[in-house]
Design a protein around this nucleic acid. Structure first.
Lengths: 262, 262
DNA sequence: GAGTGGTCTAGACCACTGT
DNA sequence: CAGTGGTCTAGACCACTCC
């Protein structure tokens, strides 16, 4: 019942929590730890791997093992939805100035880099279910990436779906050169007479897939938040659905629920 | 740039995604894979570890490596807050019958096992900030565990804080033998004249700590959702704050935001 | 070039699962 | 008992970082 590497991990974990070494500081080298604990380097590495999986340390090839520094940078609030709805009716020059991400982060449009791609597809089963349409229904699929101009990796991955028939009345919606759409999707929906009534967001958490870790630049020991946002119009139809992947170590989602007064 | 174990992981991942083997099925044994790929068992194990960290497979000592089956069982909706507020004013016999967890899960009180512990503490810095009080202010701290009667591990870990001075008017609130409180915390707050106006929930995701993994029975390759719920009364005071830890692989949180109509 | 972590090998032995 | 994964050793060699 000993399990040497767990004991070593426990001991190192306790020391790190006590601040010895503190955030950002280096741990002793693996061979030093090997001597200190009297076990082989692979065993030490096994212990360090446990701490890495907990997100407690970061390994840096050629430099050493470091205590991870916490970071939560991007906040996303559900107040953005009302804000976005209000924005949709503003005149174009105002709409162009700022988007929902800037609203959340307080940054200006110059600090952010957007990338979007457009595609028409036929609804696969799971997407069709979420949109409440038949399998094979023509859809408009758009994928977004947003990142800080100073950073390499985007801080979210978004795939958004619209029912093609809903938006066919406005040819701008089917033209992928109109990117990014001034005023956002909801303004475009307004042009075809659709008003959003409520938004549902389903949130789960899991480790990133290999592709997500790659694209978001996530080190091992990070989780992602997975958000499926469904927008309903005033008649209860689903008019937009999007899947969003966010890095758990730098994202905080804020949901405010207002209650009826007594 | 080869990295054998990554290539092996890629190949196995592709096969699993294609359904070969499918969810719940066993992978070939590690020594079989060693022969198939022509690399040593430790290298194969390294590849399998990658897949485990992604939550794609589950290792079972003495049995084999299995493709993980997805499971999302517990749904938690922010509609629970209005429901809970309404319940607080109902007569006691109704309040006793069911709690917010039953409301979310659709189970009856007999399917669930509760455990609660009670403690009085002086506010440490971070809690004091969240409650908007001075450090050292007397608080009531309560920790909850809820689990299915058929399962070993709870499906959430809750720590809740109240300001002692707010609730001192009702001695029941300071008596830890009154567990679980019929009608919940908000009914108790009602007895001291406090009405909840809005709830804020902050959500992040991260890998579980060693203690959380242990207590929730989480296998490696699982993330947790961390939720900080803050309840404000009609005067804008924070009257309750709780930290909730939920297993990412079996929890879905649903937030509905209603928008103002044009 | 010295020091660090990363990959891979080969094998001994232990612990768990199922027959 | 046979078959499986889990732990640990000892060491070779590679790749990266920093002086």
């Amino acid at each position: 019942m000993a399990k040497v590497y767990e004991k070593i991990a426990d001991e190192l974990r306790t020391e790190i929590r006590a601040g010895q070494p503190g955030p950002g500081e280096r741990l002793p080298s693996e061979s030093d730890l090997s001597r200190r604990f009297g076990y082989s380097v692979p065993t030490i590495r096994e212990a360090l791997r446990v701490l890495q999986a907990e997100g407690l340390i970061v390994k840096q090839h050629g430099r050493g093992n470091f205590v991870r520094e916490p970071r939560v940078l991007v906040q996303r609030s559900n107040a953005r939805h009302q804000w976005e709805k209000d924005r949709a009716r503003k005149p174009q020059e105002k709409r162009e100035k700022t988007g929902a991400t800037e609203h959340d982060t307080g940054l200006t449009i110059n600090d952010l880099v957007f990338h979007a791609a457009y595609r028409e597809i036929e609804a696969p089963k799971n997407i069709a279910e979420a949109l409440g349409v038949d399998e094979g229904t023509p859809l408009v699929e758009r994928t977004y990436r947003t990142r800080y101009s100073a950073e390499r990796n985007p801080f979210n991955l978004v795939t958004s779906y619209l029912v093609r028939a809903h938006v066919a009345g406005n040819s701008d919606l089917l033209d992928d050169t109109n990117e990014p759409w001034p005023g956002g999707t909801w303004n475009q929906l307004l042009t075809v007479g659709i008003e959003i009534d409520r938004v549902e967001e389903r949130v789960t958490a899991r480790p990133p897939t290999a592709e997500e870790a790659e694209e978001l630049g996530l080190p091992p020991g990070t989780a992602v938040l997975v958000l499926r946002k469904t927008s309903y119009d005033t008649e209860g139809r689903v008019v937009e659905m999007s899947d969003v992947t966010l890095p758990g170590d730098r994202t905080e989602m804020l949901f405010t629920t207002h209650l009826e007064r007594w």
